[in-house]
Design a protein around this nucleic acid. Structure first.
Lengths: 203, 203
DNA sequence: ACCTGAACACCGTTCAAGT
DNA sequence: ACCTGAACACCGTTCAAGT
């Protein structure tokens, strides 16, 4: 969000290495991990608008340290869900080996639904935000491509209709999760998910 | 949210009128309307987490006046969307006269989609919140019943499959709107809405 | 009865001073 | 290089004092 001063100065000599890639200090590594872990706990307990101060306090670090590692709130949220994104990517690549393309896609999307519910809907919000910024080769982008491959295969097999895009599907699953969250009916999410699948199925 | 002191004192005599139902002061009525109108404008411009102070300032009243009329933020949001809810109810009742039950439901749901996009997704959030609290005979509850009648008719005509509930449908439409909001593809909402309709159609 | 705005609490964010 | 926490800004919410 915040614009940073461009670091590319004209004094950069042609042969110079772009980034020194120093190894970070051990306490910094530990603090970073502690903050992420605490954030996960606090987000689960308090929801998406938990206080950053509470997270810093819980991790036993100063608020400045939290900001040093995660300049924006989104950066922290992204770090919290990084593992889940990687898991979804791995699952997607695994499912490409399945011999039932339609079912494989459904399984992957259902896992998206399960993940979306973590941290009281924060996971779903984070996913929607991340899907909006598919510029650089981010972990989310890799996950997206795994899903796209599953979808293409399901379409080629005639299981899913044409015109459906992977972003639509993933977005819809997050939306289903968000919409079902406030419902008093516990089966709501699964039922809505079923409608979604039926809607994209080839007929 | 905040618990209030119970006002029901034992001195209440059996024959006493429960509420005097006084006519409110003219300036109070005007202020209330001004606050709601300003809130709509500010929510549209700044999104769902607009400052209440800005709304009060824009309406030309003290912050205390805003709180007097709307004890919680949700109360103000509900007031902002009250008219839309009433419109949806009226439209639903009108559409019951149509001779194409499936199409009538689709038209009503599409109007839900259009409404959901107002105030940068705040309308969708508000609708989801309101659907969660269907206790008293609220305006939202009347709207819900109009939709339920449309759905029942579409199901009786064999246009929509059984097992679908009106809350599911309305929630899904809000979900579609929320999911499409952050997308860079402008046709996203309509495409997802189309999938939703196909998913609930009888086959 | 209603309005006002000062007062308090809480949180986000920055930054000078430390190690 | 990294950490700390005081300092500042901003907003939500309440309430005593006004009309």
């Amino acid at each position: 969000m915040t614009a940073r001063t461009p670091s590319l100065t004209p004094t950069l000599t042609p042969g110079s290495v772009p980034a020194p890639a120093r190894r970070p200090r051990a306490d910094a590594v530990r603090n970073r991990a502690l903050i992420v872990e605490t954030a996960r706990t606090v987000f689960t307990a308090r929801g998406s608008d938990a206080s950053l101060e509470e997270i810093a306090r819980g991790a036993g670090v100063g608020i400045g340290t939290l900001y040093r590692h995660f300049p924006t709130r989104d950066d922290l949220v992204a770090a919290v869900f990084r593992e889940r994104i990687d898991e979804l990517q791995a699952l997607g690549e695994q499912l490409l080996a399945s011999d039932a393309p339609g079912e494989a896609l459904a399984t992957w999307l259902h896992e998206q639904l399960v993940q979306a519910a973590t941290c009281r809907g924060l996971a779903a919000e984070a996913m929607l935000t991340m899907l909006g910024q598919h510029d650089e080769p981010s972990p989310c982008e890799s996950m997206r491509q795994a899903g796209a491959a599953l979808l293409a295969r399901a379409q080629a097999a005639g299981d899913v209709r044409e015109g459906v895009e992977i972003d639509d599907l993933v977005r819809m699953v997050q939306a289903v999760s968000l919409a079902a969250e406030e419902s008093d009916d516990p089966g709501s999410a699964e039922r809505l998910f079923g409608f979604l699948l039926d809607g994209v199925r080839a007929r």
